[in-house]
Design a protein around this nucleic acid. Structure first.
Lengths: 253, 253
DNA sequence: TGACTTTTATGCATGGCACATATATTCATG
DNA sequence: CATGAATATATGTGCCATGCATAAAAGTCA
């Protein structure tokens, strides 16, 4: 019974039989992960891109990515790529979308599961600054929940030519952030453990791409129960120092 | 240059080289799609499940699914599966999540991209009623945006044993629906082209699992600009007939 | 015709939010 | 030490969405 020819988990009685697929009668595409590592600078969101040195799309910029290894869960592969290319561990990481258009890689069928990661700008700024690595600014040409690919710019507002469908991946990551911002605790992921309310507001404004009302933002955040005062205050500022808060995880009521 | 050994789209300078991956040095998992076809009955959401006849998980219930074919986009595969197993074409279809846990299929590494589809209950009720096919009721044991696997019941409240991680897929689909309900036009996808406001409200209530205020729901929907009066009215009802509306696609302002 | 049911319309109180204004606090500067 | 600058914090006001209550309208059915 165990060695009978059985149908696969998801294709019972399908034309694509289990044995056939196992024997390679059907193309088995390569699986990769690509990671959109996002952080929030003062003016815009930033993401880590790597310059391609080899064909195809040589000279263009790509997201850090890699092949899925045997027995490895996809999220583990994304974490591994992040560790290898940016030296980052333990950051927020979540699946974004799976890209499967047949022509997205000109050489062969490559299906890529995109993830997005978030970290505070301090850590983001300290990732290995290879000559082939850049923290690109994300310029979003659309508003709200519309979506679409974005424009990435490097030093001196130079527009970066993106490889493959990676500009779409970044655009989808921004769209996802905008959608989740007001019901999931993702703003905190872009800040260090302790931060002021105004810093949190600037992060939200950077993500949404529009200014927010200071007072209502204050009240909303304090009323949400997600914040906890540390009792400490800002230092080395040339004005009245603001109170420092931290994210309170036990707000899941 | 073109026939040089190049690195893949997503794994530039990775340990997993392009040539290596092409030669099969790395496991290339099978890729399948599974479709959560959802419709809204009066009391609960329903989804289409198929009884497995062969090992593993024989006798358990699974979502309709199938292998990805060569050169086929994932969404096309999901549409094909839906057409083959339910005879449905042209319904709302959207990617849900990619499941990749190494142990999810006991035989081999199978990675499945889950999609969810929506159709009105009339079409849903008329899908081919094989003895191995059932429209299962979805019982959601959690509230709001929490998430998790759900319980599926068949005729006579009999709990259906689900195969693999398919109960999680259905749970994630419900969670996605709940999250998107108030900013995306998905309620309409679960109704025929013309419907009354109260029918739309019942669909929303079924998705959210909680009652809604009738007046504010009315006002919200009419103010959203997504509805268009047909001028016609209900027939064959034993009370004042309600006005019939249709979904107005040009509300994307 | 009148009872009944459901839809549809209207009024009103409440609460959250945006916007404006005012006060308090801290530090730098002359 | 007084002043100014910049920000935090508090208060007030109008607007809008929502919830609740009431009433009128439009059908069916006895």
């Amino acid at each position: 019974m165990a060695n009978r020819k059985t149908s696969p988990a998801s294709a019972q009685r399908s034309e694509a039989s289990w044995a056939g697929a196992q024997a390679g009668r059907f193309e088995r595409p390569s699986l990769t992960v690509d990671v959109v590592l996002i952080s929030a600078a003062e003016d815009a969101l930033r993401t880590l891109v790597v310059r391609r040195r080899e064909a195809p799309e040589a000279g263009r910029w790509a997201l850090p990515g890699g092949f899925l290894e045997p027995g490895e869960p996809l999220e583990a592969a994304a974490a591994r790529v992040l560790e290898a290319k940016a030296g980052l561990a333990g950051v927020f990481l979540e699946q974004l979308y799976t890209f499967s258009e047949p022509g997205r890689d000109p050489r062969a069928r490559v299906i890529s599961v995109a993830y997005y990661a978030l970290c505070d700008f301090g850590r983001f700024s300290s990732v290995g600054a290879t000559p082939d690595t850049t923290a690109a600014s994300i310029e979003v040409p659309w508003e709200g929940e519309t979506g679409g690919p974005v424009t990435l710019t490097g030093q001196g507002d130079a527009r970066l030519a993106m490889a493959f469908d990676h500009a779409e991946m970044v655009g989808l990551a921004v769209k996802r952030l905008r959608g989740k911002l007001d019901y999931a605790p993702i703003g905190f992921q872009l800040l260090p453990t302790s931060f002021t309310l105004f810093e949190l507001q600037r992060v939200h404004e950077t993500i949404l791409g529009r200014p927010l009302n200071k007072d209502s933002f204050r009240r909303r955040m304090l009323a949400s129960g997600q914040l906890e005062a540390t009792g400490e205050r800002q230092a080395d500022v040339e004005h009245r120092p603001a109170e420092l808060y931290r994210f309170s995880r036990r707000s899941a009521i």
